[in-house]
Design a protein around this nucleic acid. Structure first.
Lengths: 224, 224
DNA sequence: TGCGATTTGTCCGTATGTATT
DNA sequence: TAATACATACGGACAAATCGC
């Protein structure tokens, strides 16, 4: 008996547990650096320890959790170097995505891109910071889907939770956050254009700007 | 302070099981497309089902196994499209690696590269096909280590077993295989030089050549 | 189509080993 | 050093889903 609908997630408890635990991390409900006690978390999520452990393995693979053998599993802590790595890697991935997908663009996919951007602008106008973060990521999903490259898409899907995680931390620290209103205008314009090299060059700037927009608050946090 | 032994693998049975199972796949001991019966494999590896399941999750993440909920876990089958994806993604990753690591090269690391190439040439001379495959991958490890980029290195470490897997299949089908004697001469020369763009351009050719060198036999195999 | 056999998903109790106090 | 807390690992159990006839 399952009145399960909205999310087409697989219907194994392990997978739902994976998603729920990721939620708890991404919303900042679980504090970075803190230890996860298996019995405690299992009880909280109302699953067995075996099921929880299977869910945690995948979160460790992604990088949201860190497992130290015989010592425990901890919520990932992000420092400035980690964030720089995430952004530089993301830049490389997205350049690949545009290279693979460039010739696959058509009217339909470009209209789709346009829609995603409008949704982003809408959430920003609404002062919906969390929604804006999700909308921005969804905007960037576009090029990966366009590429039709499953390994590339997988890699992006693995990286994305780390970005969300950082944004959540950022937003929790200073409550203003999120992308700026016009930050994607040039991005969209170039993505619709016919100059791939210019698009690729812009990506470097775009990402660098995104990094610096969010990175700053780490400097004010206690080191270590 | 613990006296370190040969294998720096972690001490947990789950991890050793992961490695042993990967061995069985990479050596072709387990046939691509075949189903893994948990009780049977667990008995063969002399571990509990729970431990085996935890090990299998990570192999599913890498892509060597495919898990279908309630239906079972299967050994990955690679078709021509998969192989093309692996190679195109690998090309992108390695270009990133050289970009990140280019300015970090010094006499020591270049001597290290030289050594890896000489070892590769040696194994080829010895007609040690399996050793040559490992030596070639180790040669390519160089740029990822040089980059000092943990996400990039991780990504490569995830991709590498898929390459090994394919090489193993290839070698099992036709027993001649492995890299050619001079295939890396230009690669090494450019990696030692001072023209990054030329290096990046060569990578495309190098990978394309590697792909076509191995891809051919898939055409002679039954489709599906 | 249906039914029995098989296998996976999940839970629990428990024992062992490791880290920490 | 001893004691405690916890992760690791096992084996058995059962329901639910799938598979084969």
């Amino acid at each position: 008996m399952k009145s399960q609908n909205q999310t087409p997630s697989t219907d194994t408890l392990k997978d739902r547990t994976h998603e729920r635990l990721q939620e708890l991390i991404l919303t900042g409900d679980l504090v970075p650096g803190s230890k996860l006690l298996e019995t405690q978390v299992a009880a909280r999520l109302d699953v067995s320890r075996a099921t929880l452990r299977e869910a945690m393995i995948r979160l460790s693979e992604i990088g949201l959790l860190v497992n130290l053998p015989f010592r425990g599993t901890y919520i990932r802590k992000l420092d400035r170097v980690d964030l720089q790595e995430i952004y530089s890697f993301r830049t490389g991935l997205e350049k690949m995505a545009f290279q693979f997908g460039w010739d696959k663009r058509d009217l339909i996919s470009l209209a789709d891109l346009q829609m995603r951007n409008e949704r982003l602008c809408q959430t920003i106008s609404d002062n919906d910071a969390f929604g804006a973060i999700m909308a921005e990521l969804h905007l960037h999903d576009w090029c990966y889907e366009l590429s039709g490259h499953s390994l590339l898409l997988q890699s992006w899907e693995r990286l994305k939770p780390n970005l969300q995680f950082y944004f959540a931390m950022h937003q929790k620290a200073h409550d203003r956050a999120g992308p700026l209103r016009e930050s994607h205008d040039e991005y969209i314009r170039l993505a619709k254009g016919d100059n791939l090299d210019e698009m690729l060059r812009h990506l470097e700037d775009h990402m660098q700007q995104g990094l610096q927009n969010t990175q700053s608050f780490l400097d004010t946090t206690s080191p270590g």
